[in-house]
Design a protein around this nucleic acid. Structure first.
Lengths: 148, 148
DNA sequence: CAGAATCCCAAGTGCAGCACTCGGATTTCC
DNA sequence: GGAAATCCGAGTGCTGCACTTGGGATTCTG
């Protein structure tokens, strides 16, 4: 039930991109230094983010990364799904009840317990899809000792 | 963001114990056969559950396991915490804001993002601590093709 | 135009944890 | 006594995490 550093660092890095949104690309070196992360490791995270369209890259000197969409249109859930995979606690919780998949469970115990995972899945999505990068920026700018 | 088979099987097995609550011990062999799981693997899950007091064991022939408390007093969260560890998405989300731990974050990005993890943590706990084994039993007994 | 800065890509590495299996010791009912 | 069960420790193959290493391609700046 935890988020790996991929998702963790990914959201942190995307938050930094969002704070600089509108003022040119930000390099991974900058992000890595600001946040105390490995630049090469961040590279690995940004490859799938770019393929998913969440960021755009600018190559060459003074290059870096830009948000692929407006901060209001990128949720934490969008980032996590790219870096962590689907956010269902167990595989069978991915299928929603209306598809009739409930009948697929071999035994009654598993079916009953699956309802727990479905509810958990929904609770997770409610949180992560309800927070956008714009929300994080607002919150960051309101912090007392905020710099940059 | 997922639950391993430890937590998954553990909750399924505990649900079966709860259904038989009050009518003697249930052996792991029975559970394993009913649910199509490995008996030896279940053994490993029940060791920590017993140490945590969630189940009691009866050794010898016709032995097995009993719930350590009433079904109303065992939540899914109790089981998951024993088998999966703390349910916080990242370590720093374990500390709640009122302890003043918010000041510990080195950089502002991490702090802002941590609020996401804290909210996620709370949402998870709301679900898993709000479902008891008694709830699962009620639901199981109401299912159409319910047996045993 | 050189060279620095940057993204891009592939490969490898050490470690931890998952999902079991195996073999046996101990306890208890019949 | 023997079968049924819990207990216990060890081992195993695999996958994924959290990086590192080493290079190549692109583009701005002096």
């Amino acid at each position: 039930m935890n988020i790996s550093t991929k998702g963790h660092y990914g959201v942190m890095a995307m938050a930094e991109l969002a704070l600089h949104h509108g003022s040119g690309p930000v390099s991974l070196k900058t992000i890595a230094e600001n946040q105390g992360l490995s630049e090469h490791y961040l590279e690995q995270l940004f490859a799938p983010l770019r393929r998913a369209g969440l960021v755009k890259s600018v190559r060459g000197a003074q290059g870096g990364y830009l948000l692929g969409r407006e901060p209001e249109e990128i949720s934490v859930g969008d980032i996590l799904r790219v870096l962590e995979g689907p956010l269902a606690p167990v595989e069978c919780a991915l299928y929603e009840p209306e598809s009739g998949a409930l009948e697929d469970c071999a035994n009654p115990y598993q079916c009953v317990v699956r309802d727990v995972w479905v509810r958990l899945h929904r609770a997770v999505l409610d949180v992560v899809d309800g927070i956008t990068l714009a929300d994080l920026c607002d919150q960051a700018r309101r912090r007392p000792r905020f710099y940059i």
